[in-house]
């Protein structure tokens, strides 16, 4: 077994194990053992494909993940309040439209996560992705989104690249 395939197995086992402990919320030794057994069994059944993984990048990636989640949360709250205001306004001041946003993520996972980050914020939603990675995004207020799109997209990409690519 090569080193990278061992790492791929380990990654899956740790992920399943942590998820199992989180869901059962039970820290008795018997539960630990059961969780570990199931995680190993799942890894053996799934047989994760080995990818170039490096342990050295892990701490930086995890730190970036925390920063990314925090940034995304702030973005969701800010835009959520903006959309709530639009909905509650008696005049319903929407300016809908579809905006093309360029994504420079190279991998499919990167593009999917880029689209996810846009769609998860209220008021913007990716309708279609083409082969060049352009994200066609429906916006509730297309003027405001177009003004901030490039800046936001640059930040998103920098963070996603630091984590996943």
């Amino acid at each position: 077994m090569s080193q990278s395939s061992v790492l791929a197995y380990l990654r899956l086992i740790v992920l399943c194990f942590v998820l199992y402990l989180a869901i059962t919320a039970n820290l008795e030794p018997a539960n630990w053992a059961a969780g570990l057994l199931m995680s190993v069994a799942i890894a053996l059944i799934i047989r994760p494909a080995s990818e170039p993984l490096s342990l050295r990048r892990l701490p930086a990636a995890l730190l970036n993940l925390v920063v990314y989640v925090a940034w995304l949360s702030v973005d969701i709250i800010r835009n959520g309040i903006r959309v709530a205001r639009i909905v509650l306004d008696p005049q319903l001041p929407i300016k809908p439209g579809i905006l093309a946003i360029k994504s420079e993520m190279r991998t499919e996972l990167g593009r999917a996560l880029n689209a996810h980050a846009i769609t998860v914020t209220p008021g913007e939603q990716v309708i279609e992705v083409d082969d060049n990675g352009t994200l066609y995004t429906h916006c509730l207020d297309v003027e405001a989104s177009a003004a901030g799109a490039e800046e936001a997209q640059r930040k998103r990409q920098a963070m996603l690249k630091a984590i996943f690519e």
């Binding site: 439209g97 066609y136 003027e143």
Partner: peptide, 28 residues
């Protein structure tokens, strides 16, 4: 959540359901 709303939005566009009061449509 975003995966489901993307699926519905994408399906609606492919079925040709028009946007109302749209200001621009880069996808057209």
């Amino acid at each position: 959540g975003p995966a489901t709303s993307h699926a519905i939005g994408s399906a609606a566009y492919r079925l040709g359901i028009p946007m109302k009061r749209a200001l621009r449509d880069d996808l057209a």
